[in-house]
Amino acid sequence: MAHEPAAARSDPLLRCNSLVKWFGDRVAVDDVSFGLARGEIYGLLGPNGAGKTTTIKMVCGLLQPDSGSIMLDGRSTKEDLAARSLVGYVPQDVALYPDLTASENLSFLGRLYRLSGGLLEERIKEALELTDLTERRHDRVDSYSGGMKRRLNIAAGLLHHPKLLVLDEPTVGVDPQSRHAILERVRSFGIGGVSVLYTTHYMEEAERVCDRVGIIDHGRLIAEGTRRELVAHLGERDRIDLAATGDLQRVAAECRAIQGVVEAAVADDSVHLIADDGRHVLPAVLEAANRTGASVNSVEVKEADLEAVFLHLTGTALRE
């Protein structure tokens, strides 16, 4: 899905250089650099606690990096308060007054972005339409369903027409239907020319929505590129998911010994493997599982995807 022209890379909307952030003696973000072109959707993919939220909080000006710099449209967010208007931040947890209506919440936040009068009204109307909440605009937020709150949370980040929309795990805890709606919207923002910085720990979301993906683990950006570029790291390798009950760590250990298996890791009652030729090693994998006494519930051979890339790069499966 890379529709990024070469010119955009030379004139990025966002440029993060060597960001470092410490919390006490723990490094949360360790030398992270990346950039976003105008209209590009960039996904920061990694497990919980990898440093995604810390990174985007620095981008939004909520945290100051211990070292490194952030330039947004050629301006420094640290020194230039007005540069914050370029960013629309959508926090992970719904941040709205539950005892106010949707309109009142948006009006409040719009005023903080210095919108007023007819323009404010117009922007509120537009944001509500974009998130399908026009009909419920005069209802208190605490009467909303979880998915509606999430959508309003996003609407609040769009009011002031930011050039960069920052979404922190916008689909966590959302039902599949709302999730689909949110992802469709995110795609449409990208098409509309708004750059989107998107964090998620769901591989399929990153694959579906993002033009480019940065894989982050333990505070370090370990790979970056389009889906195609990242998967190419793996060459012709396949991914095998073995769902089983029993001593899965032992199963993984046995599998690592099989010729052709490159990586093996355990997550969510499954053993995830990367193998040179999935179909060829499958009998040996099943035999290894049998040897440990584990009972296999299902087994699946897939083409390599971002999940496989992550497993390959980190030696661990993405943790839920």
Binding site: C60, G61, L62, L81, A82, A83, R84, S85, V87, Y89, P91, D93, V94, A95, L96, Y97, P98, L109, L112, Y113, R114, A156
Partner: peptide, 14 residues
């Protein structure tokens, strides 16, 4: 706790 101060802090106000 609602995260409203955080949200306010991302707007162009001190």
């Amino acid at each position: 706790r609602l995260g409203m101060y955080e949200r306010m802090a991302t707007t162009p106000i001190h």
